[in-house]
């Protein structure tokens, strides 16, 4: 009886929890979509100041670049480490660079770079705006006759769109060079042979899709993190919750978007 009661209670709790989670995520998505519509209107009406975009772009690029380079560089080394010995066994030495470049350009640089940027820039963006919200600074912007979304979110989204591709391109080069060291040590391949193999596997389309992914991810990271920060209310705990939610939700959005873009262009 107790077991049955417990099961019923537990299943009820799980269902309720899932329902709440889904409802919360749907609400959040609708909220973010409304902010996106406002941002697009601001851009079309040229209501976003160049000074704010440049400030945000500088913060976006400077804050995120070191971590993005480390993560993508080390990821390149790990992938090279894993594939090189296998490729040597299969006698496909000439294609090691090709495989590494394909993986790094198509997936690793945009995805791992995005994760680095979410951790460095997205989280601080969400925390900053959430703090402004709970300390009434956002209200002060509104009462001053300035639209807070236009002032706080639109420049960040535009900066994310433009600066992210440059970060990802630099990270891609670091990833490819990071991959060279294990390849050289395991398969004894020289730099020029490795680079030949890298360029052999790359198509123009790969580069364009990588840039597209970077621009879309940059936009989404700024939009999601700034919007979740903007939705915060309460106190210090709520700033922490908003920051965590921004990071988690951004990860999910980026992974799903990556799948959709890859599916659209490569299958």
């Amino acid at each position: 009886m107790d077991k049955e009661f417990f099961r019923e209670t537990l299943s009820y709790k799980i269902i309720t929890f899932l329902k709440d989670q889904i409802a919360e995520k749907v609400d959040l998505t609708v909220y973010i979509f409304k902010i996106l519509v406002k941002v697009i209107k601001d851009i079309l009406n040229l209501r976003v100041g160049m000074k704010h975009i440049l400030n945000q772009a500088a913060r976006f690029g400077v804050d995120s670049l070191p971590l993005a380079l480390i993560i993508v560089g080390v990821s390149g080394m790990i992938i090279a480490l894993q594939v090189t010995s296998e490729m040597v066994k299969q006698g496909a030495v000439d294609y090691i660079g090709t495989l590494i470049s394909l993986v790094i350009v198509r997936e690793i640089a945009p995805i791992m770079g995005s994760f680095a940027i979410i951790s460095m820039v997205g989280s601080s963006m969400a925390a900053e705006i959430a703090t402004m919200k709970v300390t009434e600074q956002v209200d002060a912007i509104s009462v001053s006759g300035v639209d807070p979304v236009t002032y706080l979110i639109t420049p960040r989204v535009v900066a994310g769109f433009f600066i992210m591709p440059s970060v990802i391109v630099v990270a891609t080069f670091v990833g490819l060079f990071g991959g060279y060291f294990p390849v050289h040590n395991i398969a004894d391949i020289g730099l020029s042979s490795y680079l030949d193999s890298v360029w052999l596997g790359l198509y123009e389309k790969d580069i364009w899709v990588e840039l597209l992914k970077a621009a879309v991810f940059g936009t989404l990271i700024s939009l999601v993190c700034a919007s979740i920060g903007y939705k915060a209310r309460g106190g210090a705990i709520d700033v922490g919750v908003a920051t965590t939610n921004a990071v988690v939700y951004s990860f999910i959005v980026i992974v799903i978007t990556d799948f959709l873009i890859s599916y659209a262009f490569f299958y």
Binding site: E128, E136, D139, A140, I141, G145
Partner: peptide, 13 residues
Amino acid sequence: MSMVFQYSALFDS
């Protein structure tokens, strides 16, 4: 219109 907030609400950046 303007408003003076309880905790000043100055823009800290």
